[in-house]
């Protein structure tokens, strides 16, 4: 299949307090792909995502969304193109789940508009996609951490953007739920031809669900490609500074485990 490029990053460089955070990053993201950025802590994963969301001012290079220079997009246009799930979202007390997911509709509403039946329908569909429709009338803060994470992802889905950016969407969850979230994201990418970009520490799930991987260290991309291309002992040694053992399980999934003597 022929996939269009949705987001193109070229020679991106970012300084914070005169320290180089991102160094000459070039990356092309395609529609219908789940892309994982992996790397040790402090590699600049979150900074890269933040730059894509225009939270940081680019010092050099460019980011293009569907051929358009991102700097020229208005904030509302940006919100119609990219949705974002934060590493640790703040959730207000007393807010109902459906109201929270409804926030995702804001970019599509004019100032005097109120949410229509269609918007509520979209909210329901988004909750269905993350398998959380039963929580629709619950208060957000009464849910467990994992359930909350699914609701936050539903908010991003309700935004109906061609690009979704998620910062560690499956961190600190049990291994079944982590895999479930990755599977949901993979499905969205494939079935709806969206670009899903995540930063993660979970190498095994990244290998299993990603179409493309990007290995980031000290603000530089040291390797990028499909999981089978980039996941070898040498690259893992390079990236994390630890020797690893790469095996296959019965189903043929690649498993990476660290090796200590």
């Amino acid at each position: 299949m022929n996939f269009k490029t949705s987001l193109a990053i070229q020679n991106l460089t970012l300084y914070k307090n005169k320290i180089k955070i991102l160094d000459d990053i070039s990356l092309e993201l395609k529609e219908g792909n789940l892309i994982s950025i992996i790397g040790p802590t402090g590699a600049g994963k979150t900074s890269l995502l933040r730059t894509i969301l225009q939270f940081e001012k680019i010092n050099d290079g460019s980011i293009r969304i569907f051929q358009k220079d991102m700097k020229k997009l208005k904030l509302n246009e940006l919100a119609k193109n990219i949705s974002f799930v934060h590493q640790s979202s703040f959730l207000p007390v007393g807010l109902l789940v459906n109201k929270y997911v409804l926030f995702g509709r804001n970019p599509h509403l004019g100032f005097f508009d109120t949410e229509s039946k269609i918007d509520y329908k979209i909210v329901e569909q988004a909750l269905k996609k993350v398998d959380s429709l039963q929580f629709i009338d619950r208060e957000l803060t009464t849910l467990s951490g994992g359930e909350q994470r699914l609701i936050i992802i539903a908010r991003a889905i309700a935004q109906q953007t061609p690009i979704m950016v998620l910062d560690e969407p499956a961190a600190n969850l049990d291994f079944a739920l982590s895999a479930k979230i990755m599977n949901i994201l993979k499905n969205i990418a494939v079935k709806e031809r969206k670009t899903v970009l995540i930063a993660t520490h979970d190498v095994n799930n990244a290998i299993r669900f990603s179409d493309y991987m990007c290995l980031l260290k000290h603000g530089r991309i040291i390797k990028q490609g499909t999981p089978s291309e980039v996941m070898n002992n040498e690259n893992i040694m390079d990236l994390y500074g630890a020797s690893a053992q790469i095996t296959k399980d019965i189903d043929g999934n690649t498993i990476v485990s660290t090796k200590y003597n």
Binding site: L78, A79, K80, F84, H86, S89, F90, P107
Partner: peptide, 23 residues
């Protein structure tokens, strides 16, 4: 009162509100 929705969204934090199209 017209800015009620904006105030609601501002509660989830300045950065995430920004990604929802709020200046």
């Amino acid at each position: 009162i017209f800015f009620g929705r904006t105030l609601n969204i501002l509660q989830i934090g300045p950065e995430e509100a920004k990604t929802l199209g709020i200046k």
